[in-house]
Design a protein around this nucleic acid. Structure first.
Lengths: 344, 344
DNA sequence: TTGTATTATGCAAAGGTTTGCATAATGATT
DNA sequence: AATCATTATGCAAACCTTTGCATAATACAA
């Protein structure tokens, strides 16, 4: 049943002319007689001729496909970035192939390998929390496949990078907490190999330092994942201590939401007793009670920009060695899970 | 810099044998001398020979790629289905190309067209809420591209279908509400062209009927979208009326969450005064206070199964005309946004 | 009529692989 | 020595398109 589509030679045969003439006619080549062109176009239309992209791929040694590899697609964060990528790519004739590394370095490598095998023209990658060495990335780059890293950094990778200024976002959040009178600010941080964890942690620490607040080890809790259940765990640990914090700055909204749940269940008032601030500003977050204060990130723009940089690089065949490093600005969105005015 | 990878003819030249021998040697063809095979394999290894898939695609007239088209990827629901698809496909040598229709029939058509052009071997589609005629789908099928519809139905499409028994899920939810003493149950329904809206609405209506409760038009509110802000709008409308419901069954969790927000802000107690039930059982939903009662759907399995059916179909070259219709069972997850025991 | 310019078309290679068929080379049989 | 069977290899077509170069066909000038 697999209907064979019409090819150039079908048209050529029916019109008793050569394949090359047909090809040129359809491309409006000046050397072709106008009457021939008309005949060819008419028949092509009638036969619903579609150029065979597989043949073109082979000829041009490119697929017009780019590989996107993210830790997971079920999170609002990454799916929104992909959204931005999609929207940019939509206006081009590129297609997206998407892979999930599930935070596994091994798995990431397999995906990259598979996608290199199907000859994607370039990569957009957000490294796993395990990926610490840039070797494999650099191998791909060296073999001629350009690559843009987004959201998460991998130090030493010779790739373009589009990141968010996590340090700044964290600093804003914590400075704001301090200005509203919080003095015992806890931080729930992420996997320590992850660039964003460290940048946010540093932002937190530097904000404390700026206002001469002590760094207190026991107020820094590390979690291994980003979903609410890890927030629940962390918050329970925090509440066990008799020395309660007056604010919690969580590495992301998922964690913050888990924490809020535990805190409210324990009968502690948010924000009167404890302020809570998240990171990501997920759409759901503003429908919690109280709505969650959070650091918004330009996720969609990050996707758009990453795609733009990659496609731009692909379009200039002579590759220039220059690498772009973009640092997008996050923004603190203040809602009711934190105070508006200094406490008492 | 674009390094050219080794080809069969590179190997052949160096070994002074023909390309076909090399090809056969690498495929362990019985007619090839064992010593030749060894030589070839050794050199192939050394040159890091990778078969050029573009050439194979052209030769086999297939790409080992399948197109997935969903209304949006940023929702938990669809991204989880994709997750299931990915996981199934991972163990094969198929790749996924993903498109977003954004609930626009026009856009969906464009995507399908583009993907057909790049010669995907098959489609996994969840139709938009606008897609009412199956013509374009059937066109694709007729042209030889198999197609599996998931989650949302399109009546008349001659495709395999993997759906969830939305009717049953809604019926379960509403029957449970009735059994816990609710008598004035409102329903927030979705776009009326959408199969899932109708099935859930019918489940709601039939449950009422079974318990001799009247269908009350003013308790049925239609929304055009699935995110919380639509739930807010709908709930406001419901609260305007003096005749408050004692339960709200929302078409999905997003709507339910928006509604809960408004209800709680209005100082109405959940579930004491109004029970709220959603649909989808998103991970966030259990961290609201009160945690949301919701109808869980086997999203991941739906993805897995859809992919399995499609790949199965692709593997048997003689296509059989038989179409599968799978109806997966949802499950009511009772939490604290609804009563456990009959009221009063 | 011959030569030159102009215009329109075709040939063939390239891109990399697989595979049916033909053939070369070897060994065995009579 | 001649014939046959066996084993190993190569040729060429097919998948479909683009494009440099050659050539055919026509018109025009000398």
């Amino acid at each position: 049943m697999k209907k064979k589509l019409a090819t150039l030679s079908d048209i050529a045969r029916q019109l008793n002319i050569s394949v090359s003439t047909v090809s040129r006619a359809l491309h409006d080549h000046p050397a072709i007689n106008i009457k021939t062109k008309k005949k060819v176009r008419l028949l092509a239309e009638k036969l619903n001729y579609q150029p065979n992209l597989l043949a073109l791929n082979l000829l041009n040694r490119k697929t017009n496909t780019i590989g996107v590899v993210v830790p997971e697609i079920t999170s609002y964060f990454f799916s929104s970035v992909i959204n931005g990528i999609q929207d940019f790519v939509n206006d081009t004739n590129y297609q997206l192939i998407i892979g999930q590394s599930e935070e596994s370095c091994e798995k990431e490598k397999n995906i990259l390998q598979a996608l290199a095998k199907v000859r994607v023209d370039g990569f957009l990658i957000s490294p796993t929390s395990e990926t610490v060495k840039p070797d494999y990335y650099n191998g791909l780059i060296k073999s001629g496949i350009p690559l843009v890293l987004f959201d998460r950094d991998c130090v030493g990778a010779k790739a373009d990078k589009v990141l968010v200024d996590d340090y700044d976002g964290a600093f804003q959040a914590v400075e704001y907490l301090i200005k509203t009178g919080c003095r015992r600010i806890a931080h729930i941080t992420g996997p320590s190999d992850l660039s964003i964890s460290n940048h946010r942690l540093n932002g937190y620490l530097d904000a404390l330092k700026k206002y001469d607040l002590p760094k207190q080890e026991h107020r820094i809790i590390e979690v291994e994942g980003f979903s609410p259940e890890y927030g629940v765990k962390a918050a329970k640990k925090i509440l066990e201590s008799p020395d309660l914090p007056d604010a919690i700055f969580a590495i992301n909204d998922g964690i913050a939401i888990g924490a809020m749940y535990v805190i409210k269940e324990a009968g502690i008032k948010i924000p009167d007793q404890i302020s809570v601030v998240g990171f990501d500003d997920e759409p759901h977050s503003s429908y919690f009670i109280p709505p969650l204060t959070s650091v918004w990130q330009p996720v969609y723009d990050m996707g758009m920009l990453s795609a733009r940089i990659l496609l731009n690089k692909l379009s200039r065949h002579r590759q220039d060695k220059s690498l772009r490093f973009e640092l997008l600005k996050p923004e603190l969105i203040i809602r009711k899970s934190s105070l508006n005015l200094p406490r008492e």
